[in-house]
């Protein structure tokens, strides 16, 4: 036993200082412990920056027909166009610069993924909180629907919804929200059930605060950590699902060329060895999804109180 004592003594000051620093700072200290996750975060920031800045940094506007030349069609990566521009990632069948196409595609993919993620979180979290706070019939009803929905795979539900709703960017977002809200609802209900029994909620209720205030000002903030983790992972899922649906030709319309549509566009040229039309958008999609998942994985570890040292 005596052997372990020095360790403990040595460990204590670290903990003491950790208690002084702000929660946000401690969060960052814990987060950066995993280098891969930091790389993931950097990847996320890069992707977001590329998406936001696409019109400024893209070599051409890929959807401005006056800038395209059909003679540049299907050029290999690195080849030059007639007027001296270099296509670093090659061109597609319309003579569109793939790099520009990808930058614009990331914009659309990310927008759809984040929009559907946020909407699903709002709806799902509200439902989960309602279920946990009121309990009884409300809880049974909401959770039945959640259970039922989670017993079917996301892609099947998305297929049903797309078949029912038809195509269009708004309809895809609706379908993605409908597929995903249940994950948020179940997550937040689990946390909220534990939190609801704590004394601060009782105190708030004793102060005769309204239901809405108790739920959203007191209960919700304490249920956020797991919600953030699920949110990160679900945004990655949403992006992948949208890309899959678009690839299958039942997702976004051709006027909203997301990464999935770019990949679909290159599919037919793949068999003749023109790999770049599908390959590079896929790499961009992969980078996006992997980065988000890495961050989500580390968030899960950092925000999980059970794993806290």
């Amino acid at each position: 036993m005596t052997v372990t004592t020095p360790d403990r003594v040595a460990a204590e000051p670290v903990e003491a200082t950790a208690a002084v620093v702000s929660p946000l700072r401690r969060f960052w200290i814990e987060f950066r412990e995993n280098r891969v996750a930091v790389a993931g975060l950097a990847g996320c920031l890069l992707v977001v920056a590329l998406a936001l800045l696409a019109p400024l940094i893209a070599p051409q506007n890929p959807y401005d027909l006056t800038q395209l030349d059909i003679m540049d069609g299907r050029l290999e990566p690195g080849s030059k166009s007639m007027d001296g521009m270099t296509f670093w990632l090659g061109t597609d069948d319309q003579g569109r610069d793939m790099l520009s196409g990808i930058l614009y595609g990331i914009r659309i993919s990310l927008a759809v993924g984040v929009a559907s993620g946020v909407l699903a979180m709002l709806f799902g979290a509200s439902m989960g909180l309602l279920a946990a706070y009121f309990g009884g019939r409300v809880d049974t009803l909401i959770m039945r629907v959640v259970d039922l929905q989670l017993s079917f795979p996301a892609i099947l539900l998305a297929l049903i919804l797309v078949a029912v709703l038809g195509q269009g960017i708004d309809k895809i977002i609706i379908a993605l929200v409908a597929v995903q809200w249940a994950y948020y609802a179940r997550t937040i209900r689990g946390t909220a059930l534990v939190e609801r029994r704590k004394e601060y909620i009782e105190a708030a209720q004793c102060l005769a605060l309204g239901h809405r205030r108790v739920v959203f000002r007191h209960l919700l903030p304490n249920c956020l950590p797991p919600l953030i983790v699920v949110g990160t992972v679900q945004v990655a899922h949403a992006i992948a699902l949208e890309a899959t649906l678009s690839f299958l030709g039942i997702g976004l319309p051709i006027t909203e060329p997301s990464l999935g549509l770019l990949i679909a566009n290159g599919f037919e040229y793949m068999l003749s060895g023109k790999y770049w039309i599908s390959f590079f958008p896929g790499v961009a999609l992969l980078l996006t999804i992997v980065s988000i998942n890495l961050v989500g994985d580390q968030l899960r570890d950092v925000l999980n109180p059970r794993l806290r040292k």
Partner: peptide
Amino acid sequence: GFSLPTFWVGLMLIM
């Protein structure tokens, strides 16, 4: 394996 979109892996396998 979780992150790779199935359809893109399929394309790469073909390629």
